[in-house]
Amino acid sequence: MIHLLCLALALAAALLSLAAGTTPVAVFSGLGDWLTGVDSPAALIVGEIRLPRTLLALAVGAALGLSGAALQGLLRNPLADPGLTGASQGAALGAAAVFYFGLFPAAGEAAPALAGLLGAGLALLLMLALAASAQAATVIMAGLAVSTTTSALLAVVLNFAPNPFAMQELVFWLLGSVSERGLEHLYFLLPALLAGGTLILRQRRLLHALSLGEQVAQSLGLAFDRGARWIILGAALLVGASVATAGNVGFVGLLVPHLARPLVGHRPDRLLLPSALLGASLVTLADIGVRLLPPGREIKLGVLTSLLGAPLFIWLIWKERRA
């Protein structure tokens, strides 16, 4: 039931996103035209401009929501953030290398995403090698070490920016956005979403058992070390791919599991899909907000989610304290 409600919300957000914009168009006929190859202005606006943006917002939100729910469940910590694996900073560093050193010129517009995915992968490998075991404290420390290192390297890159334009481009990119991206970005994101999601969903039983700690999970016959590594790998894939394509979209991965938790009786295994769907809805709605704000200097999606997410998070903590 909860799953259906969340799915309905995500679908409604997607339709709203296809309809939202400065030019009013008939969404369904435009979509129909685009699918059947009819050349019409509505087909161009809905199919070529708004559809990739909507699908990207949905996928980024789903990836962040799912990875947040999985990491919070694995680390038994409601403050675990998807950035914790170091994957998002690794992705940012990879993208920075493209802006400064012009890596992967053949990939064109998708070069930052490709390099970002590579950066996320390297950061993840480093983190897993450093963590060695899958104990929560070690994973948090290794993730922190890797993200601190990559952040320091990113600061070096910004410090020695060859020109202010490159720096501005990178900073704007890092602020997070799903605009001006095409369907080719989905070619990175969708496989990562599918692979990461599968890896995580296969460990549902472990996440449920981990509610009572590692010892209980192991005594229930579950392989904690192996399962934990799959979850970390899945989360890093999701985060890395989403940062690589859309930059940092803050607070979604941290906040969405908190919103979904009361809906599923606080069970970490049942939290996964609703978190993905709510994350998808939230990012899509935030992106509609970005488009509906008065024209001029566009507010970046990541800035808006952080602006909305921070007070919501404070409210959640306040509510929890009073309970």
Partner: peptide
């Protein structure tokens, strides 16, 4: 197995 210190991370 019933461990010595039990706790639930979540409000199950």
């Amino acid at each position: 197995f019933l461990p010595q210190a039990c706790s639930s991370a979540w409000a199950l």
